[in-house]
């Protein structure tokens, strides 16, 4: 084993022996460093999943985050990316069966963070659609790097907004809700989507042609407002550009 690997191996496990190349005064300092590594990762999760933390309470969240950190070393030096596996970890906890919406709330918080840090990219303008009026049926769109959609069996949008600055009260969490996250300029926008709008936008994001996506929207609900959803998609900045016929 390389020296670095031996040094790193004990960092996340308080019961592991101090690596043998650490000598003299260093074992105590290694213990301090080991503690700081875990605390740093727990703090990162607290900052990255504020609504999940509020739902679970600070003490419970801290214990859960510590257990997660000891099993999941960061994969990137950028700590604002830390916790990619956290939603799945939450979903797998038997103790959390009373919080069935928790993993989806965590996924949305992750989507929010990715959107915040996504590249600044020009968004699709209404004029781009006007110029393509002769081939609307087969139009396809390139998603903006900040765009995120999720359809949940729970009221994720209501739960998220109530627990990120709201009063924490959600009247009816057990109703399906979809959420759209975009960042057309500097500010992240979180929008609740009716099922038809989600069906339409998710199809377009997956690369479907406009006519096919519209069919999906109406299949999800006869009340689908096609014009209103196209307007939303332009104003929210879901896409960056049209995909031209040669696929670029």
């Amino acid at each position: 084993m390389q020296a670095e690997a031996r040094f790193a191996a004990g960092l996340l496990d308080p019961s592991a022996p101090v690596p043998e190349q650490v000598r003299d005064q260093a074992p105590r300092r290694y213990a301090v460093y080991r503690n700081n590594v875990t605390v740093g990762l727990v703090k990162a999760l607290e900052a990255n999943f504020p609504a999940v933390r509020r739902l679970l309470g600070e003490a419970y969240f801290a214990g859960l985050a510590r257990a997660f950190a000891q099993r999941h070393p960061p994969e990137s030096p950028l700590l604002f990316h830390y916790g990619a596996a956290f939603p799945a970890y939450l979903a797998a906890q038997d103790d959390l069966s009373g919080f069935p919406y928790l993993a989806d709330v965590a996924r949305v918080e992750q989507g929010w963070r990715r959107a915040y840090h996504a590249a600044d990219v020009q968004v699709l303008e209404a004029a781009d659609l006007a110029l393509a009026a002769d081939r609307l049926m087969t139009l396809r769109f390139k998603p903006h790097p900040a765009t995120f959609v999720l359809a949940s069996s729970y009221a994720v949008h209501a739960i998220l907004s109530a627990n990120r600055g709201g009063d924490g009260v959600v009247a009816d969490p057990a109703r399906p809700q979809a959420v759209l996250i975009t960042r057309p300029a500097h500010d992240v926008i979180v929008t609740a989507l009716p099922a038809e709008q989600h069906a339409f936008l998710a199809a377009l994001i997956d690369g479907a042609q406009l006519a096919e996506a519209a069919e999906r929207g109406f299949a999800a609900g006869e009340s689908f407002d096609l014009a209103g959803t196209i307007r939303l998609m332009v104003e929210a900045g879901v896409f960056q550009s049209l995909i031209t016929q040669d696929g670029t």
Partner: peptide, 26 residues
């Protein structure tokens, strides 16, 4: 194609009126 064109035209004209376009937000 005509139905889609109607919807897209309605969407584009409405968004021009509301002027909450990303360009303005930027």
């Amino acid at each position: 194609a005509a139905m889609l064109a109607t919807a897209v035209t309605a969407a584009i004209s409405a968004s021009a009126v509301t002027s909450s376009s990303p360009a303005a937000a930027a």
